[in-house]
Design a protein around this nucleic acid. Structure first.
Length: 820
DNA sequence: ACTAAGATAGTTTTT
DNA sequence: CTATCTTAGT
């Protein structure tokens, strides 16, 4: 990424081809290739030849509104990117005249890469391909003054927002206990998702918070943002909407500019995004409306955060004469996986209705397999065993994933995999830029670049400790507010007076001098150098060096990583903007590891083998979704199940347990209703993997066929299931999972090593990796969580390490680095 | 100003 | 149960 302030010239590209029959711009990339391949005959360029008829129609129907309903694995991204390539290759528009919107940075990145394959350098000129928010920023920087901002406004993240709201709540004289800032931030977010400004919010909502002060508080918040020259994420959409509405001439310019509009994941648009899009895409009569939305109503899983499936269902009304193209030919999964997913999702009402099919028919393809386990521990153990078995058959761990409904489920798998010495990767955990030390460092940088950033000021003014406690900060705060100046300025002013105690005054003087100096260096010092200098001179690095806790070394490591990642940017400002919009940092992809993630973060991904644990009533569908969302909630959960199954290319294994510990209590659980909605023809029930496996011991509910004596009545008569039944019925265990002699967790920890341990007569621990370790005993290593330590022992890929701070631990070598 | 005990809550997550 | 936050006590 390059410097964001390198704004591309605004309308200067508009001497571009005028619609109708444009003078062909010099054929770039694709066109050139196509022409070369076809001997200068533009008949059918080869990039179209590999598409199926539906995809091709979606690519070629370039004029007029188009809705592409692209089922899972039907080549959606391919269509989008080829369509853009096609528009460019046929000379219909310049890259800068195409607006292409995605939801995530990842999707935007992917699209850029893939268009790059077609068009080579032309991507450089796709300045309007990005997320709703990044495009919003771009628009807003351009027209900031129309929203009462300066074009160098700051973008606040959720943490800043919460702190700001907390201040406002306290300023109102309200109890911030009774009225949590976090909750109110959520409400504001919800309103903004709906496109509602303080004046627009429903009376009921306004009353619901802070003794009826909801609306007032929201308005105060917006005011405060303006004073701070700041924006929250919602504003990145709402301000442009307001600007477009109030300035028809500006909107018109964008109408002329954006010849072609494309939207990815349309089913996930919320009301604000929808309004934004309609303003840009809906044109006066007679003008071309070249808008193309791609989505899948069956994969709408973000309703809880404001997404409106209705937007996609309503497309044909919004854009009369729209062409609707369905992509149903699936290239990802086996017929059993598609059959299972399709039958399940058919239980939803109010869908546009697609049925995925594949031409692939291989009698060797396994059906979707449903497994039962006694409790979550056994579930994790059995999944681990299956993974090891696949591993022995030379399958890559990278091709396997465990997709859970809720993140607490991950822990059991992590524990188990650590004992097994199985590499795993958790996707979507706490994010790099959300870490405390990163946010602190960023606050320093922000304040240097943007002296008016009071939130950054308050965050770091006493970090590290400088003896500038609450009282001093409050004094500063009041001083600044009274004079309507930023706090850093207030600090500079107040040290000239004798309002503060000498101690505080001296400390403050030092800080102010530091920031003055750093600001002076901003222009002429390389930004990575300056950043390092700031962290050093402020004492921030020293603070963590002095910290003796186990996580301190990891934090220092993260700070180094932060500086390293800045190198890719041209300036500190450019970096700050990047971080504000892309809170994401890529993970180490190099090791072969099983992925563990939530179903939500799995959307858009695919794996050969997918494990779906925890299909129990209350967990999946989640009780809360049911309670709060009613039938719509249930349908969204079902779509989530559909997303989960359709992630699998070859193998899909679903699990449910009879007992799960929820909030510390053991609960007896019922199999998910979704299991009953799977088609017997495409599903097998696994034999119970262990002697005490299977479910059972409950009886009496009889709601699910998995809960009855004969679960699959006439359809499921597999010997496997019958045996599972017998095992379950003959179980002498009580309902609460209080088995004795359970030694699973100790596997791998004993002095005798992990080999050949048995549990209840069954071989449990499998061989550890035979590849020689890249480490040796006695070596000094670093672990992100536990810090530095010395290797005591090596067993396969498992290391026993004596950590300086955290003591002796066993960890996988993949999580450890040599210390230079 | 820092530690230790008590209180509290506990789907899903992007920007 | 357990992670996280708050408050009270030193």
């Amino acid at each position: 990424m390059t410097n964001i302030y390198d704004d591309i010239p605004f309308f200067d590209e508009d001497q571009a081809p005028q619609p109708a029959k444009p003078a062909q711009p010099q054929p770039s990339g694709i066109a050139a290739r196509a022409l070369a391949a076809r001997g200068a005959s533009p008949a059918a360029p080869d990039y179209l030849a590999t598409l199926n008829p539906e995809q091709r129609e979606a690519v070629e129907s370039v004029d007029g509104p188009v809705l592409v309903l692209a089922g899972a694995g039907t080549g959606k991204t391919r269509v989008l990117t080829t369509r853009i390539a096609h528009i460019l290759a046929t000379g219909r528009a310049w890259p800068s005249q195409i607006l292409a919107v995605t939801f995530t940075n990842k999707a935007a990145r992917e699209m850029k890469e893939r268009i790059g394959v077609f068009a080579g350098h032309a991507v450089e000129g796709m300045p309007w391909l990005g997320t709703f928010h990044s495009i919003g920023v771009k628009l807003l920087r351009r027209h900031a003054e129309l929203a009462g901002l300066r074009s160098d406004f700051t973008i606040l993240d959720t943490d800043d927002v919460i702190r700001l709201i907390k201040q406002l709540i306290q300023a109102e004289g309200l109890d911030d206990k009774r009225w949590p800032a976090r909750q109110f931030a959520g409400m504001i977010d919800g309103w903004k998702n709906k496109g509602l400004l303080p004046a627009d919010i429903p009376e009921g909502d306004a009353r619901a918070f802070a003794n009826g002060k909801g609306r007032q508080l929201y308005a105060a918040y917006q005011n405060r943002l303006k004073t701070l020259n700041a924006c929250d994420f919602g504003d990145l959409l709402l301000h442009p909407i307001a600007i477009f509405r109030q300035n028809p001439d500006i909107l018109k310019e964008y109408h002329q500019k954006f010849r072609y509009i494309l939207v990815d994941e349309y089913q996930d648009t919320n009301t604000a995004q929808y309004m934004w899009l309609r303003l840009l895409a809906q044109r006066p009569k007679g003008e071309p409306q070249n808008v193309c939305c791609v989505g899948d109503d069956d994969q709408s899983i973000y309703g809880w955060r404001g997404a409106e499936v209705d937007n996609i269902l309503r497309f044909e009304k919004d854009f009369p004469g729209a062409k609707v193209i369905k992509l149903e030919r699936n290239y990802r999964s086996t017929e059993h996986i598609l059959g299972a997913a399709g039958h399940l999702i058919a239980h939803n009402e109010g869908r546009l209705g697609k049925t995925l099919f594949t031409e692939r028919t291989d009698p060797d393809d396994e059906k979707v397999i449903v497994h039962a386990a006694w409790d979550s521990e056994e579930e994790a153990r059995a999944v681990g065993e299956e993974i090891e078995q696949l591993q022995r058959q030379k399958h890559n761990l990278n091709d396997m994933a465990i997709l859970v409904r809720a993140s607490f489920q991950m822990r059991e798998f992590e524990d188990r995999f650590v004992t097994l010495g199985l590499n795993y990767r958790v996707i979507g955990g706490p994010r790099f830029y959300e870490r405390l030390e990163i946010r602190d460092a960023m606050a320093y940088f922000r304040l240097v670049c943007q002296p008016a950033d009071d939130l950054a000021f308050e965050r770091i003014i006493n970090t590290p400790k400088r003896g500038l406690g609450d009282t001093t900060v409050r004094t500063l705060h009041d001083y600044a507010r009274a004079r309507d100046i930023p706090m850093l300025q207030a600090a500079a002013d107040i040290i000239e007076t004798d309002e503060l105690k000498p101690k505080a005054r001296k400390a403050l003087f030092d800080v102010v001098t530091d920031f003055r100096r750093w600001q002076g260096l901003l222009e002429n010092t390389p930004h990575t150098e300056l950043a390092e200098q700031i962290l050093d001179e402020s004492g921030y690095t020293a603070m963590w060096q002095a910290d003796k806790s186990a996580e301190a070394p990891g934090r220092l490591e993260n700070l180094k990583e932060l500086i390293r990642s800045m190198e890719a940017f041209e300036s500190l400002r450019g970096f700050l903007e990047h971080v504000a919009l892309v809170m994401d940092a890529e993970q180490n992809e190099e090791m072969d590891a099983v992925s563990i993630m939530t179903l939500h973060s799995a959307k858009g991904l695919e794996f050969d083998t997918v494990f779906l644990p925890g299909w129990e009533e209350g967990l999946f569908p989640h009780q809360r979704a049911l309670d709060e969302g009613g039938r719509a909630g249930l349908e969204e959960e079902r779509r989530l199940a559909y997303v989960g199954i359709t992630r699998a290319k070859r193998r899909c294994h679903i699990w449910f347990v009879s007992n799960r510990r929820i909030h510390g209590l053991w609960q007896s659980t019922l199999p998910s209703r979704f299991l009953d909605e799977l088609p017997p023809a495409h599903v097998d029930v696994a034999e119970s993997e262990t002697s005490y496996g299977g479910y059972g011991g409950r009886g009496g509910y009889g709601q699910s066929r998995f809960d009855r004596a004969d679960p699959f009545a006439n359809s499921y008569n597999s010997p496997g299931w019958k045996r599972a039944q017998q095992n379950a019925n003959s179980s002498t265990r009580d309902n609460w999972g209080t088995r004795s002699g359970h030694q699973v967790e100790r596997i791998g920890y004993g002095e005798s090593g992990p080999r050949g341990r048995t549990i209840d007569g069954e071989l449990v621990a499998k061989s550890v990796s035979d590849t020689p370790s890249r480490f040796s005993v006695g070596e000094r290593v670093f672990h992100l969580k536990f810090g530095n330590g010395n290797i005591r022992n090596i067993e396969g890929n498992k290391l026993t390490i004596d950590f300086d701070k955290a003591g002796e631990k066993r960890v996988l070598e993949g999580f450890v680095e040599k210390v230079g």
